[in-house]
Design a protein around this nucleic acid. Structure first.
Lengths: 249, 249
DNA sequence: CGTGCATTGTACGTTATCGAACCCTTCCTG
DNA sequence: CAGGAAGGGTTCGATAACGTACAATGCACG
């Protein structure tokens, strides 16, 4: 039987806890709103909080020495940002920032470690999630080397759709270009191709996914490879994405 | 005081253990020789053994659906292959294979988990190593997207040098091309540039690092970024690489 | 000691993306 | 409602790597 507050929690890790462990952590969690562009962790600096995502999604970015950021992974309600503290990390190796606006439960690192020490199931889930995130990053490494932007863009949109749960995303091509580490004009070309195919619709910072199946066909295998790993932890519906088909106007 | 057998162990994780924990694991370890090209784990299949590397190095590879393998990380005597089992993984997401010939201590997964459950320091070290490997993979993801082959080749040679400990490596350009996910002819061009600069010498499957500093200058920041993380766990000398300068003939 | 194969060097047309610029459209704001 | 800024489409020469082919070289083995 779940804890009485647990039914309102959308985070998959928190939702999966038994009532006894949920009770241990819920009082330590602080609900926070994440604004667009808000940075949760800075590369090289101490991790002060762990964020269990409730809605929206968070990008983990590596910042190269020329200042160019590049996304290595996405975190949504299936996971948490800052979990590397349970592996013994004290400082963040990456920049994590919210790309969408959204909500999260925040917990200070000390309290987090204290809770985890007494909640073996939570600990197991977090370790397992850390592994899944690692798999996501590894697939991205291969993807960045082998697949062209058309496939990578489709993959990214699918991942973003999964984690946001809504078919319309407020994202500029400029932002997506930064995430994927390419020129905006290159994104524009790839996005135009998808738009002409009727798969997505672009309109001034708003992108609507019209045909999810079409997007899956346009994406490289990397999307499915990672999604399959997530299913192994969270079951058949690891994400919130609905199979919404919006008819073209 | 270390265990009496511990002084012969080159693996950094095993060597760092207190005698009591070392005693728990040493009887379960089987010394094995790794032959060139030997596969330790196959993508998608159960992880049956964990390998604590003693000499040589191991590549972790993602295999894309077109059959093209692509290296995501290197494992040497500073780490172990198969550590993701402590994160709860049962199957390997990557292919791990020995590129050099070398030695390792092998332990079955069940025995490994049993030992880890009773050796908190070992567990902490392994978790920390899993994190370091994650950082390495994340940096590779960014590197694959942003840096040209000249820089990536230099970075790879440095990492291989670190982990092998000897300035001469038995590696064909063909093999390196597979690791880096590019054509062999592209490797040949980049390697020729390094050779003309007097940084390395190539001769029929044998590559000699002549000028380590020169190689570091030719490499992208990604080498140093990862090496710095490793130093945070293992101290100032995380690898066995000597600063050998072999004069040109 | 010579032959054969593995390894490396090189060439060339093709493709994807870079890097930078310019213009048009849409939305926001005063 | 008008002006301006933000976002998006497009162009173009430059570059890195592809994909493929072939020649040259050095080592192993008979």
């Amino acid at each position: 039987m779940p804890h009485r507050l647990q039914k309102n929690v959308r985070n998959r890790i928190l939702a999966a806890l038994a009532a006894e462990e949920f009770k241990l952590i819920i009082d330590k969690l602080q609900r926070v709103e994440l604004t667009l562009g808000e940075t949760l962790h800075r590369a090289g600096e101490p991790i002060e909080n762990v964020f269990f995502v409730e809605s929206g999604f968070i990008s983990a970015l590596t910042v190269l020495s020329d200042g160019a950021p590049l996304e290595i992974g996405l975190i949504g309600a299936e996971g948490a940002a800052g979990v590397s503290v349970i592996l013994g990390a004290t400082n963040s190796y990456s920049e994590t920032m919210c790309q969408t606006g959204g909500g999260a439960y925040r917990i200070g690192v000390l309290a987090f470690k204290e809770v985890v020490a007494h909640a073996p199931h939570l600990r197991d889930l977090l370790l397992r999630y850390a592994h899944l995130f690692h798999v996501q990053v590894a697939q991205t490494a291969a993807c960045n080397a082998h697949h062209d932007l058309g496939q990578r863009l489709a993959r990214w949109l699918l991942a973003a759709h999964d984690r946001s749960g809504v078919p319309e995303l407020s994202l500029t091509q400029d932002l997506i270009a930064v995430m994927l580490g390419v020129r905006r004009s290159t994104v524009s070309i790839a996005a135009s191709t998808l738009q002409r195919a009727g798969v997505i619709r672009y309109q001034h910072g708003h992108i609507t996914i019209l045909d999810r199946m079409g997007l899956e066909n346009a994406a490289c295998e990397c999307y499915e490879a990672v999604a399959g790993e997530y299913r192994s932890l969270f079951g058949e519906q690891p994400f919130e994405s609905a199979m919404v088909i919006v008819p073209a106007p």
